[in-house]
Amino acid sequence: MSKQKWEPKIVAFVCNWCTYAGADLAGTSRLKYPANTKIIRVMCSGGIDPVFILKAFERGADGVLVSGCHPNDCHYNAGNFHARRRWDLFHKLLDFVGIEKDRLQFSWISASEGKKFADVITKVTKDIIALGPFKTYQDMNAEFTTVFPEFAEAGNKEIAYEEEMTNG
């Protein structure tokens, strides 16, 4: 992405059966959408751990999209029902700690909804651009670590370890 202008970083956690295939269909139909979103594929939206989302924010994502099959269409029958309940709660929690609700969005996109996939990505990108860069996490982290310096050290170690893993 161009270096001059700020471009949001968005991560989409999608299930293998519906949304990933929907994204494929958007491609085969040659629909266009902004290039900011990177997809991470999991088998079922039921398997998306809230920690993944926190990790994404921690690693500088400005927005996160979670998408799976429509209720009742889940490849695994019920995985997405668990997902739905979990996300509802998690969304409220994020809201409670002061993270804008639109930073984390959910949608159901089936394998036949290529158009919907393109539309959702376009909308999410627009929303995140409107919200601007995501600083809350870093701010909160900074605030926290000034109060508890020992955690800062532990956190730095963790990041260093991750960096090492990534580079090593």
């Binding site: 991560v11 991470i40 999991v42 088998m43 079922c44 039921g46 398997g47 998306i48 751990d49 809230p50 920690v51 993944f52 990790k55 994404a56 690693r59 994502a61 490849h75 695994y76 019920a78 995985g79 668990h82 997902a83 979990r86 991750e162 893993m165 990534t166």
Partner: peptide, 28 residues
């Protein structure tokens, strides 16, 4: 499907091919 992995509070279940470490690495 991995629903159990996301549910497990002690993080003691791993889904082969999609474990936490692998996904964290993608995020990182």
């Amino acid at each position: 499907c991995g629903t159990c992995t996301a549910t497990c509070l002690s993080k003691s279940i791993e889904l082969a091919g999609f474990n936490n470490e692998e996904i964290f690495a993608e995020i990182a």
